[in-house]
């Protein structure tokens, strides 16, 4: 189950946020300002974590690295009893953050991340009227994201 998707720019500002209606979702609606706070907190914690990662752990990640994800030494996953948070970062520094149910694992997330990234390239970046680093308001992107989510939440 996917609960929410966040996309942040490389400087940590929130570009896109969406909660998805699912049965028993532990995610409650926040004030719009709080979404910004969540995104920039995750961005900051990720940066701090990247400095704290012990060299041995970096080595492990090297071996297990999932392609197209440049998040090698930063925060990758937060597990709680009710939901998980996954973070991937593109080489250009965009972060795609997914809130999902606890049964989600990294392999499945990697596939979802790839889909989201593809739609981001197609329907956000290729939209000539979208300005880089501005909040994403693209209908086509919404539609395609919804179909990705619907595929996971059946």
């Amino acid at each position: 189950m996917l609960y929410s998707i966040y996309i942040t720019s490389r400087s940590g500002s929130l570009l896109y946020q969406k909660d998805f209606k699912t049965v028993n979702s532990p995610i409650t609606k926040q004030r719009s300002n709080d979404y910004l706070v969540i995104a920039s907190t995750l961005h900051g914690v990720h940066a701090i974590a990247s400095k704290l990662t012990p060299p041995d752990a970096v080595h492990n990640y090297q071996k297990a690295k999932t392609l197209a994800n440049s998040n090698r030494t930063g925060l990758r996953e937060i597990s709680t009893s009710r939901f998980k948070i996954f973070m991937n970062q593109t080489v250009t520094g965009i972060k795609i953050i997914v809130f999902a149910s606890p049964d989600m694992d990294e392999a499945r997330f990697a596939a979802i991340y790839d889909k989201i990234y593809e739609h981001y390239c197609n329907y956000v970046l290729k939209n000539p009227f979208y300005q880089l680093d501005m909040p994403i308001r693209c209908q086509l992107f919404d539609t395609h994201l919804n179909s990705v989510v619907a595929g996971c939440n059946v």
Partner: peptide, 16 residues
């Protein structure tokens, strides 16, 4: 170019 690079990275799955 600044937009196309993401398409390139997504399709090729390349890292730095």
């Amino acid at each position: 170019g600044v937009r196309l690079i993401d398409e390139f990275l997504q399709k090729t799955q390349l890292s730095r």
